[in-house]
Simulated scan of single mutants.
Amino acid sequence: MSLDALPAVFRLDQALAAGVSTRTLGRLRATGEVDQLGRGIYVKLGAVDPALAPLAGAAARQPRATLCLASALARHGLSDDIPASHDIALPRNVRPPAGFAHVTWHRFTPETFDIGRVALAVGGVDAAVYSPERTIVDVFRLSHLEGEDVAIEALKRWLRQPGNHPSALLTVAAHFPATIHRLRRTLEILV
């Protein structure tokens, strides 16, 4: 009957199975020991990086949840912007979990969803983030949402990091035919 028996991010059913009642959860929320991330998803305060808590909560409910776009750019150090909401992708055929404030859900095609998806353990939950290369491709691909200047700045930062090669980026971009030509043109200008 202890909060200690639960992972940093937990579902209501896990709390009930550990002997923590809904009344106790309400009291823990009132005292600031836990916070509710979404419907039936909780986090122990101070146990998870606040920038990743919504991702962990989403992944606790939907294991395919993946940090993407502006949120992934910030995670990889490819942007100084702090996104107003957390960008989380799910396959198009998967329904987003309910009740998550400050999360912008994105639906990516199931055929390319796993390209560049990297595991990321957060608060005892297996989540994921898109690789820097996939994130740059997505930001170019969805520049109508993120802005062309954000995409170009992220690409410039990525190119300045040691060990990054345009060929790795173009390998990922090859899976997105509508984007590869624009990305290749931008690379030719920058390199």
Rank of each mutant, 00 (worst) to 15 (best):
P54K: 08
E153M: 11
V9P: 02
G26Q: 12
P50A: 13
T186F: 00
L90N: 08
P7A: 10
K44I: 10
A30H: 07
Y42Q: 01
V129W: 01
A17C: 02
A127T: 06
E111W: 09
P96H: 13
A154G: 13
L37I: 11
V48H: 08
L90W: 06
R64Q: 14
P96F: 07
H165G: 02
R157D: 03
Q14N: 11
H102W: 04
R64G: 01
R11G: 07
P7K: 01
R117V: 05
G19M: 11
A84E: 11
H102N: 12
G116N: 07
L169N: 12
P83H: 12
A5L: 15
A89Y: 14
A47D: 08
F108D: 09
I136G: 09
G123S: 00
R117M: 00
P162S: 09
S85V: 15
P7C: 03
L37R: 09
G123T: 09
A84R: 13
G124N: 08
P7M: 07
L120F: 04
T135M: 01
L142C: 02
T104Y: 00
T171S: 14
F113T: 03
L90R: 08
R184N: 03
G163C: 07
A70H: 10
G163I: 02
R117N: 01
G163H: 04
R75S: 15
P132S: 05
F100S: 03
R182K: 08
D80I: 05
G19K: 11
